[in-house]
């Protein structure tokens, strides 16, 4: 495992925990898209079914379990514990527009036509677009709390670091996984606009708000 990959995993973990802490401490999930969080829970579940079939390393297993546990906890906080604070009427992205095409694509373009592999592929495709309901919500309300911006930034950094990890692996190990790379590129591009806003506004101490 190279440094990019490790830092990528850490920043992914940081994003997930940051969001959990934000909701827990403020006792509120205002401004957070429950739909994106459900999609991420689906992504982790579909991808990490190999926990039952394949042992890779202690690190790998622990991270997978933590990701899944945190992601389901977040969904539970939003839809149950702090349901009253959930901004459902601003969280209106139609998730079927993401789930259906990515599911079809996973059936058509995959490494191997087996149930686990199709689910893995589906999770990769879905992850690349799962943040859209959240970005849509930010654009609809025109702003995001600073901590939500940090969350989105850490999440974007994670996939960007993975891109460097793939360049590294291709160069030094001759390894590449085209499905992961293309989906990872799409995912990173979706964050670009947000990165720009984050650097020009949030880092200068301003709240992220979009021009009207």
């Amino acid at each position: 495992m190279n440094l990019f990959r490790f830092l990528g995993d850490l920043s992914h973990l940081l994003a997930i925990i940051l969001l959990l802490l934000k909701i827990w401490k403020s006792r509120s999930c205002a401004g957070i898209s429950g739909k994106s969080q459900v999609l991420f829970a689906v992504v982790f579940t579909a991808r990490y079914l190999d926990l039952f079939t394949n042992y890779i390393s202690l690190y790998n297993t622990c991270m997978k379990v933590v990701y899944i546990a945190c992601s389901f906890t977040t969904v539970w906080l939003i839809y149950s514990k702090f349901k009253a604070t959930y901004d459902g009427n601003h969280d209106t992205f139609r998730v079927e527009f993401l789930v259906v095409p990515t599911a079809i694509l996973a059936f058509l373009v995959n490494h191997d036509f087996t149930p686990l592999e199709i689910l893995w592929t589906f999770s990769i495709y879905l992850e690349s677009v799962a943040i859209l309901p959240q970005l849509f919500m930010v654009s609809k309300t025109g702003e995001a709390e600073t901590i939500t911006s940090h969350y989105l930034f850490a999440l974007g950094v994670y996939r960007t670091l993975y891109l460097f990890n793939w360049i590294w692996r291709y160069h030094f190990e001759g390894f590449f996984d085209l499905i992961a790379i293309v989906a990872g590129l799409v995912q990173t591009v979706l964050y670009c606009d947000f990165f720009y806003l984050y650097i020009t506004k949030v880092l200068k101490g301003k709240k992220l708000s979009l021009p009207a």
């Binding site: 990959r5 991808r47 190999d50 790998n60 490494h111 191997d112 592999e117 390894f175 996984d177």
Partner: peptide
């Protein structure tokens, strides 16, 4: 070829 199907990344 094996490496492709053992997804060792998260």
């Amino acid at each position: 070829q094996d490496t492709i199907f053992t997804h060792d990344e998260l």
